[in-house]
Design a protein around this nucleic acid. Structure first.
Length: 304
DNA sequence: AACCAAGTCAACCGCCCACCT
DNA sequence: CAGGTGGGCGGTTGACTTGGT
């Protein structure tokens, strides 16, 4: 994207400080990025307003902080949200709601902004397609009893098809134990560091895991969202590796999926197209299955 | 090729809270 | 305690991209 020197045409409220009229807004230029990086490298971060002035950046302190935290920070990872991360986002959002920064704390390298964008563009899109509110019990149940188990299955399948867990892992990860799935047992355990996500017995895995030519997993909530190589723009500035690992503190995550899902799996197994690995087919079936699930729920609720 | 709609995501805003004086 | 400042958070915007017609 060549957005250099473009200035946002957004409207801003009139109560901005007059000095702000001299300030640049909109996309950051490469020069600005270098200036900010170099300044922080020598002086550290914090005191963003004075930092912006001292560095000679015609930006607000907030803008500098945001640029640094969401884009320029050496350990920031962008794009290519893995299946494991998707699962974790769903799980943590179910627990905490729109506490993006709190959720982001458990996905090293991910920013609250990215997670928020992921949620709004992918998850809310599906809620819209299903014609239900993203905060409704129906939608939450659909996530809990359909999408999350599917994610676990596909994580497991991806690990199995790669002869291990390596291709499903972020290239930067050094904590492979966080991604090892015990797919030989009747219960699939997703080990996220010291926490676990238990889900249904895998049985005959019907939801085929798909991957692109790079071996990177393709999102099941999205249309080939991950279908591109890892893009980490700030590697232009930081060519070194990133050592990070998934940790989940001492918290335990448990999905009450066992026992709820057999019908859904049967449904999927009856659709041989599930196994062809074509994402457009899979994605279209998501909605069919989701609609079926919602109908079952509505029927159940009306009978109750 | 041109147009349009939908999707994506960087960057912004307003609000709030913690801290300092 | 009040006022000012810095920083963090969630929500929103809009430029750009992509896909469909």
């Amino acid at each position: 994207m060549d957005s250099n020197n473009k200035v946002s045409r957004m409207n801003y409220s009139d109560d901005q400080d007059e000095e702000l009229t001299d300030l640049r807004r909109g996309p950051w230029t490469v020069d600005e990025d270098f200036t900010l990086i170099n300044y922080i490298a020598h002086h550290g971060e914090g005191r963003w307003n004075s930092l912006a002035r001292s560095a000679g950046l015609k930006r607000t302190g907030k803008s500098c902080r945001l640029r640094w935290l969401n884009y320029l920070r050496p350990d920031v990872r962008r794009g290519n949200i893995t299946l494991e991360e998707q699962l974790l986002i769903l799980e943590l959002h179910a627990r905490w709601g729109n506490r993006w920064s709190k959720i982001a704390q458990h996905l090293p390298g991910r920013t609250d902004n990215e997670i928020k964008n992921y949620w709004r563009t992918r998850v809310q899109k599906h809620a819209k397609q299903l014609k239900c509110d993203v905060n409704s019990k129906q939608f939450k149940d659909t996530m809990r009893y359909l999408w999350m188990p599917r994610l676990v299955e596909r994580i497991q399948a991806a690990a199995a098809s790669s002869g291990g867990a390596t291709t499903a892992l972020p290239s930067s990860s050094t904590n492979t134990s966080a991604y090892l799935f015990n797919n030989q047992n009747s219960t699939t355990t997703v080990d996220m560091g010291s926490s676990t996500i238990n889900t249904l017995p895998p049985g005959n895995s019907s939801a085929a895991a798909s991957s692109d030519s790079f071996g990177t997993p393709v999102s099941d909530l999205t249309d080939c969202y991950n279908n591109y190589p890892v893009v980490n723009n700030n590697q232009d500035y930081y060519p070194g590796n990133q050592n990070m690992s998934y940790s989940y503190g001492d918290q335990s995550l448990t999905s009450p999926t066992a026992g709820y899902f057999s019908q859904g799996l049967d449904f999927m197994e009856q659709n041989s197209q599930w196994t062809d690995g074509a994402d457009h087919v899979l994605d279209s079936l998501w909605n069919v299955d989701d609609m079926w699930f919602l109908q079952q729920q509505q029927q159940f609720n009306s009978n109750a």
